[in-house]
Amino acid sequence: MADADLPAPEDPADALAAVAALRRLADHLEDTAVERAMRAGWGWPQVADALGITRQAVHKKHAKRLIAAGVELRRR
């Protein structure tokens, strides 16, 4: 963050685009962080708790990708 007192964007188009871009950035950070955690031997329930989402959600979002990348996944 560059500015502590950055005002909320006034133009709705800018404000909404910022939300979309933040989601995309958060997704990218999530992909990287989940991959690192799973490579470090974390299980799905731990990752789910850490992200504040359900185990099903985290599995649905990341399992195929990580399996395809050859990451060894703990069963539970």
């Binding site: 560059a2 964007p9 933040l22 990218h28 990708r65 990451v71």
Partner: peptide, 18 residues
């Protein structure tokens, strides 16, 4: 769009995702 809310993409060292 990130800069609108003060986020600097260049400051992230992001690995390409799997």
């Amino acid at each position: 769009s990130l800069a609108v809310v003060g986020v600097d993409l260049a400051s992230f060292d992001l690995a390409p995702p799997v």
